Computed example of a mutant assay.
Amino acid sequence: MKRFAVVIGTAVLGLTALTACGDDAPAGGTSTTQSTAGQSAEAKLATAKSDKFGDIVVDGAGKTLYVFDKDTANPSKSNCDGECEAKWPVLKAGSAAPQVEGIDASLVGTVTRTDGSKQVTLAGLPLYYFANDAKAGDVNGQAVGGIWWVVGPDGKKITAEKAPGTGETSSYSY
Rank of each mutant, 00 (worst) to 15 (best):
Met1Arg: 12
Phe4Asn: 15
Ala5Ile: 07
Val12Ala: 15
Leu13Phe: 06
Leu13Glu: 07
Gly14Thr: 08
Leu15Met: 11
Leu15Lys: 07
Ala17Trp: 05
Thr19Glu: 13
Gly22Thr: 04
Gly22Arg: 06
Asp23Glu: 08
Asp24Lys: 02
Asp24Arg: 04
Asp24Tyr: 02
Ala25Asp: 11
Pro26Leu: 04
Ala27Ser: 11
Gly28Gln: 03
Gly29Tyr: 02
Thr30Val: 04
Thr33Asn: 13
Gln34Arg: 12
Thr36Glu: 15
Ala37Val: 02
Gln39Gly: 15
Ala41Leu: 10
Glu42Arg: 13
Lys44Gln: 15
Thr47Ser: 14
Thr47Met: 09
Ala48Trp: 03
Ala48Lys: 03
Ala48Tyr: 02
Lys49Gly: 01
Ser50Tyr: 00
Ile56Phe: 09
Val57Thr: 11
Val57Asp: 12
Val57Lys: 03
Val58Tyr: 05
Asp59His: 09
Gly62Lys: 03
Gly62Met: 10
Gly62Phe: 08
Leu65Pro: 06
Lys70Trp: 08
Lys70Phe: 10
Ala73Arg: 03
Asn74Ser: 14
Lys77Phe: 01
Lys77Val: 08
Cys80Trp: 04
Gly82Pro: 02
Lys87Trp: 11
Ala93Cys: 03
Ala93Ile: 02
Ala93Gly: 12
Gly94Cys: 05
Gly94Met: 08
Glu101Trp: 04
Glu101Pro: 00
Glu101Arg: 03
Gly102Pro: 01
Gly102Cys: 05
Gly109Arg: 01
Thr110Lys: 02
Val111Asn: 00
Thr112Gly: 00
Asp115Ser: 03
Ser117Arg: 09
Ser117Asn: 12
Lys118Gln: 05
Gln119Gly: 02
Gln119Pro: 02
Thr121Trp: 09
Gly124Phe: 00
Leu127Glu: 01
Ala131Glu: 09
Ala131Asp: 14
Asn132His: 09
Ala134Glu: 12
Ala136Leu: 05
Val139Lys: 01
Asn140Thr: 05
Gln142Phe: 12
Gly146Lys: 04
Gly146Val: 03
Ile147Ser: 15
Ile147Ala: 10
Trp149Ile: 05
Val150Ser: 15
Val151Asn: 12
Val151Cys: 13
Val151Asp: 12
Gly152Cys: 01
Lys156Thr: 12
Lys157Trp: 04
Ile158Glu: 07
Thr159Tyr: 01
Lys162Pro: 00
Lys162Cys: 11
Ala163Tyr: 04
Ala163Ile: 04
Ala163Gln: 10
Pro164Val: 02
Gly165Pro: 02
Thr166Glu: 03
Thr166Met: 02
Thr169His: 11
Ser171Thr: 09
Ser171Glu: 13
